[in-house]
Amino acid sequence: MIDREQVLHVARLARLELTEAEVAKMSEELSAVLGHIEKIGELDLDGVPPTTHVVEVSNALRPDEVQPSLPREIALASAPAIADGGFLVPSPQADADPS
């Protein structure tokens, strides 16, 4: 079960902002889903290896060969804000405490 504090903590980690009403709803909905999910806790999985990839492939490395880069105007084309050839963002240093 996931309470209000946990919801707020997770939202902070995920950079999401929830209204008070959303927090309550999220707590309820996530608790319901987690209640279902927690049934896997009953399984005996000792010694079972985890699966990250269903198909056995390894390495798939790339030769160290230069490929053309994007022209800068293309790289910046979709950016909401640009300046001096770069992506403009609010300065992290100037940030107030998020919480």
Binding site: L16, E17, V89, P90
Partner: peptide
């Protein structure tokens, strides 16, 4: 700020 931009954008 930055965190504010992140959270508003994503929310």
């Amino acid at each position: 700020g930055l965190v504010g931009m992140y959270t508003k954008t994503r929310s």
